[in-house]
Design a protein around this nucleic acid. Sequence first.
DNA 1: AAAACTACCGGGAACATTCCCGGAAATGTT
DNA 2: AACATTTCCGGGAATGTTCCCGGTAGTTTT
Lengths: 381, 381
Amino acid sequence: MIHCPTCEQVDSINKAGMVRGKQRYYCKSCQSHFSFADTPKPRSKHQVTIVDIAKELGISKSTVSRALRNQNDIHPGTRKAVMELAQQLDYQPNLLAYGLVKSRTNTVGMIVPEFHHYFFPEVIIGAQEVLQAAGYNLMICQSSESYQTEVANVKALMASRVDGLIVSMTSQTHNVDHFKALENKGTPLIFFNRICPELDTHRVVVDDYEGAFRAVTHLLEQGYRRIAHIAGPASLLISRLRQKGYTDALMAYGLEPAPELVITYDLTDEKARIYAKHLLDLPEPPDAIFAVNDPTAIQVILIAKAKGIRIPEDLAVVGFSNDPISAIIEPGLTTVSQPVGEIGRTAAQLFLETVRLGEQTIPRTETLPTELIIRGSSQKK
Amino acid sequence: MIHCPTCEQVDSINKAGMVRGKQRYYCKSCQSHFSFADTPKPRSKHQVTIVDIAKELGISKSTVSRALRNQNDIHPGTRKAVMELAQQLDYQPNLLAYGLVKSRTNTVGMIVPEFHHYFFPEVIIGAQEVLQAAGYNLMICQSSESYQTEVANVKALMASRVDGLIVSMTSQTHNVDHFKALENKGTPLIFFNRICPELDTHRVVVDDYEGAFRAVTHLLEQGYRRIAHIAGPASLLISRLRQKGYTDALMAYGLEPAPELVITYDLTDEKARIYAKHLLDLPEPPDAIFAVNDPTAIQVILIAKAKGIRIPEDLAVVGFSNDPISAIIEPGLTTVSQPVGEIGRTAAQLFLETVRLGEQTIPRTETLPTELIIRGSSQKK
DNA sequence: AAAACTACCGGGAACATTCCCGGAAATGTT
DNA sequence: AACATTTCCGGGAATGTTCCCGGTAGTTTT
């Protein structure tokens, strides 16, 4: 009943176990195992490939490949025919196959901690602008301020074999092994905003210290003396730099920063409100607050207004970044503006440069200027 | 002087032209061409692969592949050894190769018209949330309201062989051939917000008509009668629906909408300001403006305030979307809130459903509810 | 007319995986 | 002891490209 597929024997066939849900047989005369093939799976719709075109035209896939891309070694007529058929069949090159052979995907990965506020989306826009012009795609991940997610993002991006990474770190990131690993692989890595001091990579930052210094100096010039600072987490260099700018500006004015007026927090809106309340409820409340960024400053203004505190008469507020809301809120928020789109563009350019120069690239730090934008929230007139 | 590499002949060797910058030779005795190979390119650092692990362990790549992924047909000891070595060598699977053989990349593409305002980033966050949980990556493109870019985005995403597309169309998109082409390829396609009525796909929308109707009815109830509408471009269904809600609300109140009070525009901030000014400078200016979205409404408020027009006494303003700025601006902006994150999550779920059901999916439209948030900008008290 | 050159084209390896299927050995069953 | 089953492993095709290199035919030069 059971035929051996090779020797056509019917006797001397033994069962040889169930394997992966199928019966296997053993033919003693052939001394070999066999089983019966599954029905060949239906092979669903498949994207048109280079060989489809080649077959249709009766030429080789090499020729089609050349026609589609190259200008050498191809007869104009052949190219025309290929191009037309490709158009007609709506051929889309398979970037997976391409990337596999070229070890290059023409996409760069970007990891940002959050997406809710103005800053990061705008940086992305800037980066995409120059990357797209250079023929690169962008793959964006959101780490949500979670170290775990950041590590997973890096893994996922590397699995997709992106050509480079543009990153602004999580405030939770203390271990940077996942970034260090990239060096060995030769993957370009650019940090911006929240850079990694331990790693010798390209960086794009603004003069956080300067900006903070000028902002606080401005408050002092306006006559404010009891100036508080709501700082970001100490894990972030930008927090530390802005805080140092704050401290030094006070000292330059001969003032000693009061420890109870400096609060570091995790940049969530919720905590911002809590600490703003705390500061304003102090027995001896501050007459000005310099916030690490605009979202924080905005929360301060809202809390103060809810409490009936007059801005800027009783309290001045200064932020950092020039979020569009700062111009809309009343009073307008004095803030240190940073060239957000330019940060993204610069990061992208550094990436392109690294690709161009390869091994010879020397990591450098691009520092972009800030500008103090003075609005109502700090101007006693 | 020149040896034939096969017959070792020295005579009877002719030159045979320069080809691709290299001298070619012809050996008469072998009757064959030959040239001398380039120095094998240096083969730069390469990511560790499955075969590296296999060689190191003296087993086959099949076994390593099984160990890394599968639980069947693998000896626990072998798996352990493979896992450990993979860890040690920092092996990252190559998603390109994986995708190539599996015809699946576990990434979905997302195309949004812009990134500047609150709406789209927040939708992306929602989508990413559920997609990530399901093991998918997200590739985000920004069409910048340009039809050309949108087409290019679709091409790029398809070239990367994304498993599906979640898109909100450009206001410039009239020809939808680039989306139609996806049907044949069996790529799941989900529209949200700015959907494509001509295409029979999954869709996620909110009850734009209802929302607009309620908003305008609210204005009427507050006693406003000369209500203008700054609408979005007629190419977008949401514009048309919101405008219809506006019109019908007026009619339901027995009012005839005045043509000079309805303006459609391209959703740029600049134009918003121009048209806001225009409306307010009318000989018989409106006493209320219903704007197609919050960014537009915000511009109206800013212009009105600059002109010294009192809100809501002289002018009421209502927006759409409940952008965070609406709660911050003064007076607070009355607006139709939509569940932004939920839109993204729903779109992602529809995608997952399509993947699960395959051919059997029946396209459907998920309509999410809106809610009228009444703030100071429309409340004569 | 032989030699050299040019213009095109095709074969096939390589890229890093997965997956099918058969082989071999160990264990279990009549 | 013969048969049956289970467990684990390896070979090799397939995926869709690019790229190297040699082949052929026709043209130009000597």
